[in-house]
Design a protein around this nucleic acid. Structure first.
Lengths: 197, 197
DNA sequence: GTTATAGGGTACGCGACGTACCCTATGGAG
DNA sequence: CTCCATAGGGTACGTCGCGTACCCTATAAC
């Protein structure tokens, strides 16, 4: 039976074990020993692949999720924006999101980890989605052309992230998302159509 | 010589030592042993006062700083907002800010710690300052009355925080602060004067 | 078949947290 | 003035987790 696993097979087993540990205990609770035991191997096999715990954490995370980017088209800018925020909130509230937040927290001290995270977080794709959203709104005549701007596109998600950071929290109430859209995002879009005064 | 220190005197010595360690090495580098040595005492005296490292970290941080809240009055909303952001950026870029960010990162996993931090971070006072700023702008006829809103007041600082979080960085470039004000904050303020369209 | 390579088992060194003892200075009660 | 409870000092220890070092052994490639 249990022939000795090698290469790809073993690697997947380790990643699966690490992902489970990550989901159960977050990054802080991810220990090399536990991963080794859970994967039915030993630390040797792990350290031969990833130089340190942080690298394994990231690899396990990307093994855990490959988030699909929503591309809503509800017909109104308000509807689209809410859709985006709700999808993001759902992702971040899920077990995967907990892991992600735990990783981000740990990354604050380790710059190398932070880079890898950003690369993997799909922030660029996200910004692009918001921009096309805005462009559609302009095409519909719903928003001024000046509303199409990278900062405008990035703002709502940044606020959502800040909300997660200050509150320490799994889920942002839907009310907050609605407020971000109605009290900030839409007024901002309107305001960018007004000549500076 | 060196009479044995007790009570308040010893407590201050410990806090001073912890604060120095915090500034030199951040929260991650704050070790109980080093604090004990630096304070010229031993871990006993520390654990008799704070139950664990996190508690000492917080206590040391508040011993380190008692941030003065700026209350700019430059005559224009733009000037005031920039002043606020620049002051905040300076604080967060300083050694104190590094400590704060390091503590916040560590707090993400420990909710009790997060509460203590939020209480201590002066977020409420900050929001109030932005609100009075907005009120002054309205009084000058520079902004519509509808611009006075908690979310509007909170937005710029939230964006600044998000900037720190995503980039992993000591200092946000001044250019970014200007953009937050000119591309987002001021258009938003204008937009809130426009009837919903 | 033989052999280089990757896995398995295990032990270790190190640093850090938190705890346990056992002395000793100190200050307050009598 | 004396005695004693209390707080400090010194130090050692248990535990955990990272990362490393060996030493065997299965396996795949040749």
């Amino acid at each position: 039976m249990g022939a000795r696993r090698r290469g790809e097979e073993l690697e997947q087993a380790i990643l699966r074990a690490a992902a489970e540990e990550l989901r159960e205990s977050g990054y802080a609770g991810l220990t090399m020993d536990k991963v080794a035991v859970r994967a039915g191997t030993n630390k040797n096999a792990i350290y031969r692949r990833w130089p340190h715990r942080a690298a394994l954490g990231i690899a396990a995370y990307r093994h855990l999720t490959d988030a699909a980017m929503p591309d809503p088209d509800t017909g109104t800018l308000r509807g689209d924006a809410l859709e985006m925020l709700r999808a993001a909130n759902e992702t971040w509230s899920s077990p995967y999101g907990a892991v992600l937040r735990s990783l981000l927290a740990a990354a604050a001290d380790e710059p190398e980890l932070l880079d890898l995270m950003r690369e993997r977080s799909g922030a660029d794709t996200m910004d692009r989605a918001w921009l096309t959203m805005l462009e559609r709104a302009v095409a519909r005549g719903e928003a001024p052309a000046a509303a199409v701007h990278p900062l405008v596109a990035a703002m709502p998600m940044m606020l959502l992230r800040a909300e997660y950071a200050t509150r320490g929290i799994p889920t942002v109430p839907d009310r907050t998302l609605v407020d971000i859209v109605d009290e900030l995002f839409l007024p901002l879009v309107r305001g960018r159509g007004v000549p500076r005064g």
